[in-house]
C-alpha cells in the first residue's frame, strides 16, 4: 500500500512527461482550447438569445444564470483535466490494450487516469473563475469567510458528482464493450446541469436530484450564494453525496476490472 504522498509525487512525474510530449503539438493545444472556449461562449449566447425574448427563466435573471454556469464550468474542470482518459476506456477495452494496466504495482484507476492530463481544461478553469468573479460582483454576492469555505466545499463535492457520473457511464464498457451510447447520454444530460432545477417537476426533478444528480453539479450549490433562503437542505450533505458517489463509482470500476477478461488477440 503506497502513501498519498508517494502517489502525488508519481502523478507529478507522469504529468510532467506527458505535458512535455504534448508540447510537440502546439497547434493542437491552441485549436482544442478554441473549441473549449467556443463551447462555453455558445452556451452563454443561448442564454442571451433566450433572455432577449423573456425577462427571466423561472424567476432567475440572466446574471444569475451566468453565475450558475460559471459554477458549472469550475465544477466540471477537474473531470476534464484529471479524468479525461475515460473517453478512451471503451477503445482500450475493445482492442484489449486495457490489459497493460493490470501489470503495474499501483492503483489501476490512478494509473489509467494519470495517462492523460487535459491542458485545455485549464483554459476552462481560468475562464470559469473570471466569469464567477464577474457575475458575483454584478450580483453583489458578499464574500465572507464562511461563504468562501462553502464555495470550495461545494465545488469539491460538485466535481466529485460530475466525475462519478461520467466515469461510471464509461465503466459500462467493461460489460457491453461499446459504452458510447451510455456515455453519450450521460454527456448530454450534463449540459442541463446549469439550468434551474425548479423548471422541472415530478419525475424529472426527482431523477435529477436523487438518481442522476445533475442538480448537485451547479444549481443546488449556486442557490447557496444567490438565494440562501431557498436552498434545499440536502445541499449541506453534498460532501457526503460527492464522496459517496465517488466510492460507488470506484466500486463499479473495481467490479468491471475484475470481470474483464480481454477481447482476444
Amino acid at each position: 500500500m503506497r502513501t498519498l504522498g508517494e502517489y502525488l509525487r508519481l502523478y507529478f512525474i507522469i504529468e510532467a512527461q506527458y505535458i512535455k510530449a504534448r508540447m510537440q503539438y502546439r497547434a493542437d493545444f491552441i485549436i482544442s482550447s478554441l473549441g473549449m472556449f467556443f463551447t462555453s461562449l455558445v452556451t452563454l449566447s443561448v442564454f442571451w438569445v433566450i433572455f432577449d425574448s423573456v425577462p427571466d427563466l423561472a424567476g432567475w435573471s440572466l446574471m444569475e444564470m451566468v453565475f450558475i454556469y460559471a459554477f458549472y464550468m469550475l465544477a466540471i474542470s477537474p473531470m476534464q483535466i484529471l479524468f479525461d482518459h475515460f473517453w478512451q476506456l471503451r477503445f482500450h477495452i475493445q482492442q484489449g490494450t486495457f490489459l497493460k494496466y493490470y501489470f503495474r504495482p499501483i492503483n489501476m484507476m490512478f494509473y489509467y487516469m494519470s495517462e492523460m492530463f487535459d491542458l485545455k481544461g485549464l483554459i476552462q478553469l481560468v475562464a470559469g473563475t473570471i466569469l464567477l468573479i464577474y457575475s458575483a460582483t454584478q450580483l453583489n454576492v458578499d464574500w465572507t469567510f464562511t461563504r468562501i469555505t462553502l464555495l470550495l466545499m461545494t465545488l469539491f463535492s460538485a466535481s466529485l458528482v460530475q466525475i462519478s457520473m461520467t466515469v461510471s457511464a464509461a465503466c459500462a464498457a467493461f460489460w457491453v464493450i461499446d459504452s458510447y451510447p451510455v456515455l453519450g447520454l450521460a454527456w448530454k444530460l450534463r449540459e442541463f446541469s446549469p439550468y434551474p432545477m425548479t423548471i422541472f417537476d415530478g419525475a424529472f426533478r426527482f431523477a435529477f436530484t436523487y438518481i442522476i444528480p445533475i442538480g448537485f453539479v451547479a444549481f443546488y450549490p449556486s442557490q447557496l450564494f444567490l438565494r440562501p433562503n431557498e436552498v434545499t437542505p440536502l445541499i449541506y450533505f453534498s460532501p457526503l453525496i460527492g464522496i459517496g458517489l465517488f466510492a460507488l463509482t470506484y466500486w463499479i470500476w473495481t467490479k468491471g476490472v475484475n470481470s474483464y477478461t480481454g477481447t482476444g488477440s
Partner: peptide
C-alpha cells in the same frame, strides 16, 4: 492537422 477534436468541436 492532428487535432480533429478541436476543429470538429468548433
Amino acid at each position: 492537422s492532428e487535432s480533429v477534436w478541436g476543429i470538429s468541436s468548433v
